[in-house]
Structures are given as C-alpha cells and as structure tokens.
Amino acid sequence: MSLSVKHLLGIRDLQRQDIELIFQTAREFKEVLQRPIKKVPTLRDTTIVNVFFENSTRTRISFELAEKRLGADTINFSASGSSVSKGETLIDTVNNILSMKVDMVVMRHSASGAPHFLAKHIDVPILNAGDGINEHPTQALLDAFSIKEKLGSIEGRKIAICGDIMHSRVALSNIYCLKKLGAEVTVVGPPTLIPKYLESALGVNVTYNMREALQWADVANVLRIQLERQNTPLFSSLREYAIAYGINRKLLDSLQKDIVIMHPGPINRGVELSSDVADSGHSIILDQVENGVAVRMAALYLLAGKQAS
C-alpha cells in the first residue's frame, strides 16, 4: 500500500484510498504521541526543509513537530531575512537548499500554484503547507480526520463551511476532501465572499443565510476573514459581518441541536466566532490542532516511503 502521488500538492490530486491510507496511518501516529517517548526513529535518515514564504504559527510548528517526532532532521527557512529579498528566484533558493542534501520540502507560499511549479523542477517530494488561495491539503486532512474521530464517520455527514470562502485555501481543500469521502457540503457566507462557479464546479450547496446552514449541518467549519487578501472591501465592516455571519452562543442555543464547531485558526474572536462558542463543548478546535501533528506525520511518512519504493 502506498499513495498514488509523489507530492502532496492538493487534495484535488488524491484518490479516496489515499485519504483513507493517510487516516489509517495517522491513527497509529496519534497513539505514538500518547506514549512516554513520543517519538519514533522512522525518518532518522531524512532531512526536511520547511520553506515558509508566508507567516504561520500552527502549521509551521505542527510540521516541525511532526518531522521531529518521526526522527527527521529539520531546517527552517523563512523568506523574511533571507536572500529572497536580494532577488533570488524560488527555484534557485530551493535548489541551493537541496544541494545541501535535503530530502523533502514543506512549502508555504502566497502565490497559488507555487508548489506545483516547483514540483516540475525538483525531484524530491513536496508537501504543500498552503499556496495562496488554492489549497492547504494537510489542514483539510486533519479537519476530516477530526470529524471522523468525533462523529465516527464522514460518509453522508452534513458539513457547513462558513465565512470567507473566496480567499480560503482551507475551504477549497476541505470541499475536495469531504466530497471525496462522501459528505454533503454547504458553503455559507456573504455573496461577495463566495465564488459564483462554486455550486456547479464542485457540487456543493450555497446559501447566504448562516442560521439556515447551521440548522442543516452536523458540523460547522468556520473560517477566518482574510483581510490581508482583500484588496477591495467586500463587506462593509467587521461589526456588520459579525452581526450577520458571526456564530455566538445565542444563535447556537436557538438551534436546539448538537453541532460540532471547527476553526482552522487563527480565530478572530468576536468576528466569525464569539469566545463563548470557541471555548465551548461544541468546539473541537484544539482537537484539530492535536490531530494536525499526527496527520502530518502520516503524510510525511507515506511520501518518504513512496520515494523509496
């Protein structure tokens, strides 16, 4: 058994069996993380570089921990303070790193398609840690893994993806992943933040009414408003957004049902989620973070093994 892909560039390229293999492997890594010694020697002959051209807290720490727990050597590169500011190209930068005998690349980039471009020019496996507004595959995998862990299954479950769909790589990867696993997906948000083609292209339901979406859903995956990617204002103010699309205790209580609340972080408290919801029993936000390490270990392990076979 191995993955059908050489790189993890997006969920779009994966088969359902790939996703299930990653989950199966991640489940055992999660057990490793509960042990007194939370580390295995599997990748001790592997060196991995984390190339981050964009800011990150969770993803970067999560990848680095996953690599260390697998016994790999890691090096970190961030664009700020590097020779990128002197005008070095992406391929040159990465090739220089690889010539120091590095075996895998984890990359985040603000340009959509940057890892796909890189994959055409280098030989080692690449893990996409988020590219622009395209995909963030490991986030979608850990989200789906967390849903499966919480609800027992994904097939036939109703998942609402809420908020800034347009600028969210998490949304796109989640849609691909959940659809491949047989879930029903609804996206909800202001019309200006939902791309027009989404319904027909990806087979998801679209609604602009948050209450309606939550009433329907088993799980709400709430996204952050990405102000840094909005060049022109797409809604009038954060306050107005919070009133129309923010999820608070009162709204949840009025649904009179159980619903699982997820968020990929970082949370804008008081905007898309109020604190009493983010910290409530409905929320599995911190479980997502915990599962992130195990899921990334699985992805790294399977890609490293793929390279050899």
């Binding site: 489940r27 055992e28 890594f29 990748l43 592997t46 093994g305 050899a308 076979s309």
Partner: peptide, 14 residues
C-alpha cells in the same frame, strides 16, 4: 524503511 522494500501500513498498538 526507505530500502526499496515497499511501505508497511501500521497496525494498532495498545
């Protein structure tokens, strides 16, 4: 692992 013998899928440890 990484010796060209294919990849093994892990089983449960308890």
């Amino acid at each position: 692992f990484n010796k060209g013998k294919g990849l093994h899928v892990p089983n449960e440890t308890s």
